[in-house]
Simulated assay, not measured.
Amino acid sequence: MRRVVILSSVLWLGALMSAPVSYGQVAQGSIEHPYRGVQTRVPGVFVTPVPNAPFSAVVDIQTTVELDNGQTAMRKTTNRIARDAQGRIYNERRQLVPVTFAGEPSLLSVHLYDPQTRMSVFLIPSTHLAHEMVLQQRPQEPSHPLSPEIKEEDLGSSVMEAVAVHGILQTKTVTAAVSTTGKPLMIKDQYWYSEDLHLNMLMKHEDPRTGAQIISVTQVKRGEPDPKLFEVPAGYKAVDETPVQ
C-alpha cells in the first residue's frame, strides 16, 4: 500500500493552542483548516467553540486508497459532534473500518473543550484516561493565505442539511519532476463552509497518487445538545497535562 499521511489528535490540540485569542469571521475564500490529504487516522471536522450556535450532527468519512496493484481499498467511519450555547464542543474520533462493516466503529477518542475555562480534554476509552490541559488562549476560526501554486475557484452558494453553505475549489498542479509518477498531476480540495454553524459541512480531497477522501456533516439538529456530552464520564482518571509556567 502506498504511504498515506497519519494525523493524530495531538495536531488538532496544537492547532487550538496556536490560534489567535479573539474570535473572528472567516474571510471570503478561506477555510477552517487546510485539508492534509488521505489519512489512516482522521480527526474529523474542527468544531469552532463559538457561543449562541448550538447544534449536534454526525460526520461521515469515506476514504479510498489506491493500492500498488492498481486496486482500491475503501474505508469509512462515523463521528458525532456537538456544540452548546456556551460554545462548549464535543468531537469524536472513531476507527476507520471497511465499507462492508455493519455496526458502529470503535470509539478511539473524544475531544471536549470549554471556551470559558479554556479547558481542553481528550478522553481515551481504551485507558479511561482524561488528558486535561488549560490552553493559554482561546481558538478562533483561522484564515490561511494560499501559496502561489494553488489556484482557487469560487463554487458559489448552496444548501446542505438545511444550512446555507459557500463552496470553494482549490487545485494544485504537481510537476512531473516531483510527482513520483513521472508525469504532472493535479490535487483537488473542495470545501463547503457554513458561516452560520462556523464549520465545514463538506470536504473532498483527491490525489491520483494516494486516493480520495470525503468528509461530510449530516443529521444536523439545531438546538441545545445533552449537557452530559460535555462532561468527563464517571470512571475516567484525570491527567493534568497543562504546561508549567
Rank of each mutant, 00 (worst) to 15 (best):
H128T: 07
V58Q: 13
Q86I: 01
A102S: 14
A85V: 03
H205G: 09
P208Y: 06
R88N: 11
Q213R: 11
P20H: 10
A130Q: 07
G223K: 11
E206N: 14
Q62R: 14
Q136F: 02
T48L: 07
H33L: 12
T173C: 00
L229F: 09
V50F: 10
T127H: 11
V42H: 15
A212V: 01
V38Y: 01
T48I: 08
T181V: 10
P34V: 07
T242N: 05
L7C: 04
Q219L: 00
E206P: 02
D154E: 10
P139I: 03
L229Q: 09
S8T: 15
T218C: 01
Y193F: 14
K204S: 09
F55W: 06
F122M: 13
L199C: 12
R36I: 02
G37W: 00
P227E: 12
V10S: 12
V121I: 13
P20N: 10
G156D: 03
S56C: 05
E195N: 15
I168H: 06
Q62W: 03
Q95Y: 08
K228Q: 14
I215R: 11
T127S: 15
A130V: 03
P115A: 08
T173F: 02
L129T: 12
K221Y: 00
L7V: 09
M133S: 12
T171C: 01
L229A: 09
I168Y: 11
G235R: 08
